[in-house]
Design a protein around this nucleic acid. Structure first.
Lengths: 152, 152
DNA sequence: TTCATGCCTCCCATGGTGGGAGGGTCAAGC
DNA sequence: GCTTGACCCTCCCACCATGGGAGGCATGAA
């Protein structure tokens, strides 16, 4: 975690120095106000600098980090992985191999989930195809769901 | 919801009549003990018959319902959808069209999620492909994540 | 000074699942 | 008849990511 200004500042001063209140940081980063506070609470981002009135203020660099997080979320990374990605991002001596491993591991995980979903979709479509879909009650979908599975 | 025996019974009697304790019902249905209790609490299944000692007991028909739920979960249906499916299953006058609509709607939803995941996977693989993956710090994955998105 | 807007903290909910604490019940073996 | 272990009970907590809302303070413009 980078060092943090713990001393509160005046809001007017902060603004003059280019800091943003949480709403502006949210709008600029695509991360909701709720989630920014949440990320702070769980330690994904360091505690924000506060004004005398206890308002959080964010530098452009902070907003940049938030956008990084947002983008990583969009790619499906979980919080722990993003934590690792942020650490690598901040580490100038990182090995790109570590980043690549993380990304490909995540891609594999996504691939696995895709496989599961495709199996579900295919089963559903097959069952639905065999279902008349009219006013009669007979339905292979329900028959399948209620089938006694004697195997095992 | 089907009618329920509210009067507690003796465990020995219940067993003789073919009822199962929750552990056996779990093993036979593939639904965990925890989840059976959960499904009861949220009203997906009716309250189980209880013995004098407050143990839940389940008939073969109850276990059959649990297996139905389990199978529907395996196909990715959510609790509310399963609630609807169970209602249709119990309704002898159902129209198969209703079941089919539910199944195909769910299949579409799954299709949508597959699309999202594929987009993530493709992006990740593309980025990873351009990453050397060695000891050097340069990495297009991190570059992409940290990119300032001026559009908007 | 008023008033709207935005910020603060704290609690709750979602969905589906599991873990565990603290206590009662049952059956088998001695 | 007593011990023991497996099973059952309820209640609370956790995950992950997100949002809703209540009750209260700060800020700035009219």
């Amino acid at each position: 975690m980078p060092r943090r200004q713990v001393t509160p500042v005046a809001l007017a001063d902060a603004r003059r120095e280019g800091f943003h209140e949480i709403g502006a940081a949210a709008a600029a980063s695509g991360v909701s106000v709720k989630m920014i506070r949440h990320y702070e609470k769980i330690g994904l981002i360091p505690p924000a600098t506060r004004t005398f009135a206890n308002y959080r203020v964010y530098s452009d660099a902070d907003v940049h980090s938030l956008r990084f997080i947002r983008r990583a979320r969009d790619l499906g990374f979980g919080i722990r992985q993003i934590d690792a990605l942020l650490a690598l991002w901040r580490d100038r001596d990182r090995a790109s191999a570590d980043v690549k491993r993380l990304a490909l591991g995540h891609a594999d995980e996504i691939e696995r989930r895709i496989g599961e979903l495709e199996a579900m979709r295919d089963t559903l479509r097959e069952l639905a195809e065999r279902c008349h879909g009219d006013a009669r009650p007979e339905c292979p979908i329900l028959s399948d769901l209620s089938r006694q599975r004697t195997t095992q």
